[in-house]
Structures are given as structure tokens and as C-alpha cells.
Design a protein around this nucleic acid. Sequence first.
RNA 1: GGGCGCGUAGCUCAGCGGUAGAGCACCCGCCUUACAAGCGGGUGGUCGCUGGUUCGAACCCAGCCGUGCCCACCA
Length: 869
Amino acid sequence: MSTRMPEKPSLAGLEERWSAAWAERGTYSFDRTADRAQVFSIDTPPPTVSGSLHVGHVFSYTHTDCIARFQRMRGRAVFYPMGWDDNGLPTERRVQNFYGVRCDPSLPYDAGFIPPTEPGKAQLPIARANFVELCQQLTATDEQAFETVWRRLGLSVDWAQVYTTIGPRARATSQRAFLRDLARGAAYAAEAPTLWDVTFRTAVAQAELEDRDRPAAYHRIGFPGADGKPVFIETTRPELLPACVALVAHPEDARYQALFGKTVTTPLFEVPVPVLAHPLADPEKGSGIAMICTFGDLTDVTWWRELNLPTRPMLGRDGRVLPLPPPGLDSPHGRARFEELVGATVFTAREKVVAMLRESGGLVGEPRPINHPVKFFEKGDKPLEIVTSRQWYLRNGGRDLALRQRLLGRGAELAWTPPYMRARYDNWVGGLNGDWLVSRQRFFGVPFPLWYPLDEAGEPIHDAPILADEGHLPVDPSSDTPPGFTASQRGEPGGFIGDPDVMDTWATSSLSPQIAGGWGYDEDLFARVFPMDLRPQGHDIIRTWLFSTVVRADAEFDSLPWRRAMLSGWILDPDRKKMSKSKGNVVTPLDLLVEHGSDAVRYWAASGRPGVDTAFDTGQMKVGRRLAMKLLNVSRFVLGVVMDEESDPPAATDPPRAAVAATDPPRAAVAATEAADRAMLAALADTVERCTTAFDAFDYTRALEAAEQFFWSFCDDYVELVKVRAYSTGAAAESAHAALREALSVLLRLFAPVLPFVTEEVWSWWQPGSVHTATWPQAPELAAAEAPADPVLLSTLGAVMSAIRKAKSQAKVSQRASVSLVRVSGSAAQTEAIRAGADDLRAAGSIVDLELLEVDGPLSVEVTLADAA
RNA sequence: GGGCGCGUAGCUCAGCGGUAGAGCACCCGCCUUACAAGCGGGUGGUCGCUGGUUCGAACCCAGCCGUGCCCACCA
């Protein structure tokens, strides 16, 4: 027996041992000599490193890893990078608090800057480039912690392929893609009303919105008409009265026919506004006539645009009432009242206006409380306002039917796992109401790679931007000087100024295949991996990450970014709620892996099918651990009876990693000759086929089930049946040895994608190289080698064994107890099957006499136990 | 309001046209030289409801009910 098989096998320490060995041997290194057809490339989701990993990450990344391992064993060169998402607001906030600094893009880069050791009371202003450096420093330690978890979980990532979303390469890629988009007209700047977060003081995109139910109240307010008769509207935002530009009702609303074209006056502020007709006005809502303000909501924007109304902005970018009244608010009374609102928040302004209305009698009755959905930035905690500002947009079909159809076509072209997730894509793309707003008035992010010349008055000339050179990216226009200027001309009349904005974080994330694949840096690599084979991701970010990635690839490459998207579900508490930190029910991944073992946790994860929300279930992990233990033990048995014959102990080192050809396990020298052995191998061949079909369809759960189902019957029926024969010697024993060896080799490989540690451990006892670079078993070969084999044989023998066990169990005697007589009646095929395995059966069941009776009926087994007394 | 999931044994889930399944839990046994952190056996379900199609429906169709997610134009 090989000295490499321990006397008492154990799962302890496998994670440390094998993750270190894989790293040292480069087991998962991408073979970049492989061409595109041989490669299987994965667009790994980069986890946000300023947060922490949670159970949901472990769950979904395991799914991807199972696929990666299967594809590798199938002979593909797997491109499996890891990204760290350190771009965006979460990191920005963390750095501010950690170092006590804030980003001031107007400052020049300070090459010798050292952050304060302790955060001071006032935040220290620093240049954007310095701020970005701090972000990178701080996230580096987080990234190290994440990598530790991933290695322990056994992700077969190639750790030479790591990228970050704020690193120089990601910034350059984002800027290059933007310049290309600008050149082809897919990117443009526009001055327009945009949704605005007053806390973060930035514009936000449609994809970042969420509705939240908020209490509000309908205020019924009278607008005096020319004849003195008031028109009553109902509004939840009375504070916007100074911003009112018109009233609007449905063109067919009988109640307001006479008013259309007439003018009424806003209460308190005394601004004359027209009464107009528009089909968007809903006769059922409120009084059926609405006031249009600039801007209270998105419907106001539509009305304002389509009815060519003037703009009367009254809120600033900080969400407070502006110092000067909007144009048109000319009456002394009105201006005096507006004066009282200046500087107030929306909330305060509302209270003041309502008080004024009560006083003036403009308010009819009491406000009627309601709950209604209000738009929020998903990371914000104040309702969004709408302000007019200059922003950059990327065309995404939101304003262009042809492009929208084209992108819907991309969705149809993409393979979806599970298929029904495509509906979410179609739903989102179909419902877009504008182009993708990509500029953010923030600091930590990828800046737009351009500057504006300043005219004689020092005002930027927005129509003539100075673009960065594609060969010199990344640039930071807040500290770099554009070509043709000197640094001293920054901000001077006739000089230049950098575009102050940064890109939406999705504008970078949407390029993850380009960043990971080396677009613009390593075209040779890029050609081997792009378009990628697989995008694994959560179903909650189809509208953002998935869609935006499709948009970018379509624009630049006229292709999909990947062939397939695999959507993972969420982890639910036992009480069916989505697991979240706030509920205090988060288990840290590392603790989980240490407590149950990585294979066990992976086993649980693999039980969650793509797209299906799955309950957090330590019970399943215990089952997985039992399976891993069983693999160790049965392997010890098989190798114990088999390895005495092994003449050459296997080599202790891996062979050189070949391009695609994985190592072939040695085939048994002696073929299985006994009927029971051949029948088991036939069933195994069938299992291989089912397992392979499932994995080919990205159904790792079904693949695992198939392997597991066979495995337990292999252990409980087949091994028990042939055990005595296997311990003996001679031709019949050698047949069992050959079958056991073959079965173990195949089973280890079938389980390798889900249980990488225990399978590698056992493989190392008797095989050279890594099981993870071994060839995936081939069902046809196995079947052909062992054919003909009777599939009925094993199940019939199993049924008889089961009947014997049942008799013993019901008699409450040991399974070792002797059986004086077993009388089996069944069909000709069944009795023939039993005859073929009779010796094994007698030995396994401790049977003295075995009688066979051929009848025309179902199998029946009569068991007579030896006299217990 | 629209879209998409899901409702099968106490729990977690498979099955998706041919006589109800697995694992866990529970109950009863068994130290059986690979495994007692094991092994064997067993109890347990009018497959959400109501109709329809079919020789036959958990499975197909229609309509409900419950539940979750995604989206929506906030007066």
C-alpha cells in the first residue's frame, strides 16, 4: 500500500494544505497560448472591497467555481480573473473617515503627501490624485482579506489575473472607452433637468433610483382666475408654488374645457400662469387638474418639455431655497413672501408656505394624509430633487427606438441561466425613459478625460472640449495640463479648466471584460478571451451591471460581451427574508468555512440552483461534510484492497502543465470480468453522462445530485456486495479491484468541481498530478470498455440485499446475522441476474441456502433467518 | 398598475403527462475488520384552491388565493 494514504483519514487541514499547493504549482494558471476556441473565459463580478464578504458571496462564487472547474477538466483553458471593486462612493466615504481628508479637485497633486496618522477635526483637503492613492492604499488591505477567504473557499481563480476598478488600467480603459463613445456620438453632454441627490450633491441615473413609500398630504389650494373664481388643485408639494409655471388637465376633461387657454394666478406669489391641456393629466387624480412646477417630479419635466414652458427654479443643489426669486415672480407681495423662504430646506419651506396659505385663506380644508412612492437615490436618505445641470450621457436606447430594439436583440442573443431572467432585461430596456447619465459631481472616480478652453471672460467653452490623447491615459484633468497649454494657464482667461466631474461607477464596471481581458493593453490576450463565455452575477443588478456592459460592448465591438449570463439567487434566512447586515444575522464567511469545512459549505452552495433564492441551511453543510468523510473512507477501503497490486508508486510532483491536454488517469490493467462489476460500471457510465449533460447546461446542482445518487448506492450496495470477493485473491478478486479502481477514479473526478479539497486529497494518495487538471470522465469510453453489462443486474441484486437487510432489521438482529434460506421468485431476467451475482450475494448476506424460482410476476424475496437462539 | 418567480411529507427541495420522491428531522434497530461525526429499517403527503383539456394531470390550459422579487408617470 502506498505510504501516502493516511491510516486515519481526516478533513482537517485540507484547505490550508491544498490551497497552498495549488498556488505553488500554478494549478489554475491561465494558459495564454490557448486560442479563443480552447479558452473558457469568465467575467468575474468584482466584489466591493470597502464592504465585507458575506454568505451570499460564498454562495454565488462557488457556483461560478464549479463551472470553471468543470470546464478546466473538459480541457478548456479557463480564464478566471478576480476583480476588486474599489471605485465609487463606499470607498470614498471610508477614506474620508479613516484618514480625515476630503478631496478637493482644484488642488494640484502633491507627490510627497503623507496622510495624517490620526484623523483631525477638520477634514484635510487634498488633490484628487492623492485621494485616489489613499483609496488604493486602504483597499489593498481589504483585498488581501478577501483573497484569503476566496483561497480558503477553493476558488480556482488565477491570482495572476487580478484587477481593480480604480487602478490605472481601469481608469485608462474607462477613459479610452469614453473617448471612443464621444467620437462615435454615443456620448454627449447636455444641459437638462436631472434627478439630483441633495446630500451627495450629485446627479444620479435612472438605474440608481428606487421608490420608497413616504407619508405626504394632499393640500387643496385655490388659484384665483380672471373672473375671481378660483381653480382648485391638489398637491403634495405646496412649497413649490413659487416654481409653478402652469396648470394642466386632460384635454377631454369636461370640467376644465372652459379654462383651457385662460390664465390664473398663483396664490401668495401672484404669478400669472396658463391653464393647459395634456393627455398625461389624470382626471382621476386629485381634482383632475395639476400644477406644473420646475420641477416637482418627472411628469413635470415631461409637461415642461412638451408644452414649452418657462423655467422657474427655486431650489439649489443643496436642496435649499435659492437666494433670488425665479423669473416671473415680480409682484412685491410675492417677492416679500419668497424672501421668507430663502435658505430653507424643502421641509421647512413647506411648513412656511402652508402657514402662509392658512393665513391667506388659500388652503381649502385640512391637508389629507396619504402614503405615496417617492424617488430616492438607492444610497441616499433624502428624496431626490430635479435640477437643471450640464451632464454627460451615454446613449442606451432610452431616447432612441432603433438602438433600443438593437439592445433588446442583444438580450435575445444572450444565453440566460435561468432563461426567465431575460424578462427582467427586456422589462428594463423597454421601460427606459432617457439616456444613461454617467457624470457624477463627486471626486473619487474616473475623471472625464477632457478640458475646456476658457474665453476672455474666464468662462468655459463647453462646445469645444480639449480631449486627452488616447495614448496617454489615464489623465486627471484636475491636475494634468492639456496639450498646448502650460500649467499656469489653469483657470485663467484664455486658458483652460478641467472637466470637474467623475464617471458613474457603472461606467467603469460596465467595462469589466475589457479591463480584465487587457483591452488596449494586451491585445493578444484580449483576442483570446473576448467576448467572454460567462458572466455570473446577481439578478438584482441586471438593469445596471448586465445591461450597461451590453451597451458598452455593443457600441465598441458590435457584439455581446459574453455568450451567457448565469444569475444567482439570494441567501435567505430560515424565516425567508433576504439576509442582511441590519438584521444582525450575518455569519462571516471565514467562520463558516472553518466550522464546517470548505467542501461542506460548497456542497450546500451547490444545492442552490441558478437564480433560485436559497435558505441558509447548516444542515445541508453537515450533509456535505458527511459526503466528504464518506469519500475519504470509501477511498481508503478501495485503495486498501487495490493498491497492493500497484507496482509503481505515483510520482510525487505534477507533470508540466500542458496547454489543454489534462493528465489521463491510468486505466486498470485488468478489465472487470464479473457481471456485478460490469453492471456497476455501466451504471457509472450512465451517471457520467447525466453529470456531463447537467454541467454542460450549467446545472451544477443536477450534476452533483447525479454523482451523489450513484455514490451512495455504490457505497451501500455495490461495495457491500463485492467486499468479501475483493478481499480474496484470484481472477474474480482482480475483476473487483479493476472495477473499484475505475469507479473511484471516475467518482473523484465527478465530485472534483464541487468538493475540490477532499477529491484532491484522495487523488494525491494514488494518482500523479492534480485531479483538477485531470480529464473529465468520458461516458462512452467507460460504457464501451465494459459492455455488455446488464443494467437490471445491480438493481435486482440490490433489491434482494435490501429485503435481507429489512428482515434482519425487523427481527432486530445484527446485519451480520446468518440467513438459513433466501427464496427469490422473479422473472427469467431477474433470476438470471441473481444467479450471476449469487456468490457475492451469499457472502454479503451471510446466506446459507439461496433458492431461485422463475415465475411470471414481480420480484419477491422470502427470508428465513437462522435460529437466533 | 405591469412583469417574473415560487406554493409538493414537520423543514429544505427534486419531479413537470402515465400507480407520489430525496435529504434533514422523527421513530425502531445494529459496535457490520472503509466509515458509530457510522450503518440498516420505518412512520409521514386529498402535490395552494376552483374549473377545463385528456383514457390518464403534481405536471398542460383558464381563473382565483397566498408569497417573494423586478419594474412603473410621486399632481
